Computed example of a mutant assay.
Amino acid sequence: MKQGITPIDVENTFGKDEIIVSKTNLKGHITYVNDVFCRLAEMPEEEAIGAPHNVIRHPDMPRSIFYFLWQQIQSKKEIFAYVKNMAKSGKYYWVFAHVTPTIDADGNIVGFHSSRRAAPKNEIDLISKLYDEIRSVEKSYSNSKQGMEAGVDYIKNLLLDKGMTYDEFVWSVGD
């Protein structure tokens, strides 16, 4: 879906009591979506199932944020993150995501589960400025891998300066 979609500066919104739910397999392909996901992504369930989850990734998202996400969930830990997603029309929607690995009875990761709520406007304002800074660092490198690594270093240094872990920082945004 994402290929050829031009982002537009129009927001899809959803209620503070609504939750977007999706599940993926180990390769990040969607295995389940709820109706809120379908409505916001502007995609029928039949189209979403089997698609890579990054089909809703907005180009404003720094790659290094997803690095942190994957590091956590592949270590069998949950992560919370602010994410800007993109609908099929190019509209955007901000979420506060809770992503967890799905573990089988033998302790193996068999997939991933994400529940997302609407992110409050004041938190989006702060996070979007930070993400702009991180993207600027990433884009200052012609090699995308080096750019992502520089973005990760930028985040690590920011957290070090604040004396916080990633989780502590995310939870402090609303304070």
Rank of each mutant, 00 (worst) to 15 (best):
T102Q: 15
I103H: 07
D104F: 09
D104Y: 09
A105L: 06
G107K: 03
G107E: 08
G107V: 08
N108W: 00
I109L: 01
V110A: 02
G111I: 04
G111Y: 04
F112T: 01
F112L: 06
H113I: 05
H113V: 08
H113A: 11
H113Q: 11
H113W: 09
S114V: 05
S114Q: 01
S115I: 06
S115A: 11
S115W: 01
R116I: 03
R116F: 01
R116Q: 12
R116P: 04
R117A: 04
A118E: 05
A118V: 11
A119C: 13
A119E: 02
P120M: 11
P120G: 05
P120C: 03
P120F: 08
K121P: 01
K121Y: 06
K121R: 11
N122I: 09
N122A: 13
N122F: 12
E123M: 15
I124C: 11
I124P: 04
D125F: 06
D125H: 11
D125T: 11
L126R: 14
I127G: 02
I127T: 13
I127K: 02
S128L: 08
S128R: 15
K129I: 15
K129L: 12
L130Q: 12
L130P: 09
Y131D: 10
Y131Q: 10
D132V: 11
D132T: 13
D132P: 02
E133S: 15
I134Q: 02
I134C: 10
I134P: 00
R135V: 14
R135C: 15
S136P: 06
V137K: 00
V137R: 04
V137C: 04
E138R: 00
E138L: 04
E138G: 01
K139A: 13
S140C: 13
S140Y: 13
Y141D: 08
Y141I: 07
S142G: 14
S142Y: 08
S142M: 09
N143D: 15
S144K: 13
K145L: 11
K145T: 11
Q146F: 02
Q146L: 15
G147R: 01
M148C: 14
M148R: 10
E149W: 05
E149A: 10
A150K: 03
G151H: 03
G151L: 00
G151Q: 03
V152C: 07
V152I: 15
D153R: 12
D153P: 00
Y154R: 14
I155E: 00
I155L: 12
K156Y: 04
N157G: 05
N157T: 06
N157I: 05
L158G: 09
L158V: 03
L158C: 05
L159R: 05
L159E: 07
L160W: 00
L160A: 10
L160C: 08
D161N: 13
D161P: 01
D161S: 14
